[in-house]
């Protein structure tokens, strides 16, 4: 194939080479390094790293945080995207800006905000202390901070999609006698399912990988308020490299899994469109 946009072979090789070298240097090499370090003292030591009570507790806490924040943000995201995409109301732009706020704010500042609100010397601090409720330096604080940081992912994925699709299909369903829930379940949800799934995956990856905000509110109590990322930091600071990289390798696997699922979704969506197009051409012929 020779076209006007084809560059000479040399340039093509050069550009491809540069891209590959960068990929290796900045992505592949660190990835390999994580696993190499994790397995440097053998498989037994690698798995031993997860058996310590602290590691177990950290992994469990991270899983629990994700299990709570992701469904919450799916609900928030759906509600916000629904409101913004399907209705006209005053303050819509403010709401859009607020949804983006966690993206533009440093996670450390996000954590500090919660510390200021709920900490011992914070606004609600005395009241919380009087009622014996612990938020900062406790699990609720970690969940709050993670929920804040991961808030935009689902909404941001859904808003453009829902705006593009408009609400004629929903209106059609209503005139056909469907209830609000039936319309959502049978019309809206199937139309946004790939976008929603992608948003959930991104949200989950961030919820498990969040460090800054969680670090401020956690208090680093081993076995109680340490998440995986915080646990890795502590291990690393204590020169327990194998254990640190072993736990890090779990997070890395999660990142790889996210990538694979994302590609699978895109591939499936593309294939679906291709099939539809092919069948349309057949029926036209």
């Amino acid at each position: 194939m020779v076209g006007a946009t084809m560059e000479p072979k040399l340039i093509r090789w050069f550009l491809t080479g540069v891209a590959l070298i960068f990929l290796c240097l900045f992505l592949l090499l660190p990835l390999v390094a994580v696993f190499a370090e994790a397995f440097s003292q053998g498989v037994a030591v690698y798995f031993e790293s997860f058996r310590t009570p602290d590691a177990r507790s950290a992994i469990l806490l991270t899983l629990m945080t994700a299990a709570i924040t992701v469904p919450l943000n799916v609900l928030f995201g759906l509600a916000a995207a629904w409101a913004i995409a399907k209705f006209q109301f005053i303050g819509k732009n403010v709401l859009m800006a607020l949804i983006d706020l966690p993206f533009s704010i440093s996670p450390v500042v996000a954590g500090l905000m919660y510390a200021l609100l709920f900490g011992a010397r914070g606004i609600f601090g005395p009241w919380l202390a009087a009622h014996n409720i612990k938020i900062i330096f406790a699990v609720p604080g970690i969940i709050l901070a993670t929920a804040f940081v991961t808030f935009p992912f689902v909404a941001r994925e859904l808003i453009p999609l829902m705006q593009m699709q408009g609400n004629e299909e929903e209106e059609a369903a209503l005139t056909l006698g469907a209830s609000g829930w039936q319309t959502f379940r049978h019309i809206t949800l199937p139309n946004i399912k790939w976008g929603l799934l992608y948003g959930v995956i991104l949200c989950n990856a961030r919820a498990m990988g969040e460090f800054g905000a969680v670090s401020v509110v956690s208090g680093h109590v081993r076995g109680v308020t340490n998440t995986m990322t915080l646990h890795i930091e502590i291990l690393y600071n204590e020169y327990q490299f194998v254990a640190a990289f072993a736990v890090a390798s779990l997070l890395t696997l999660l990142a790889l899994l996210t990538l694979i699922v994302k590609s699978a979704i895109e591939w499936k969506a593309k294939r679906y469109l291709a099939i539809v197009k092919l069948m349309a051409e057949e029926s036209a012929a």
Partner: peptide
């Protein structure tokens, strides 16, 4: 709308695409 027993045909059809 769902209680009116009205059939509505939209300009851009609004067929359920899935």
């Amino acid at each position: 709308a769902r209680e009116r027993r009205v059939g509505f045909v939209f300009q851009h059809y609004a067929l359920f695409r899935h």
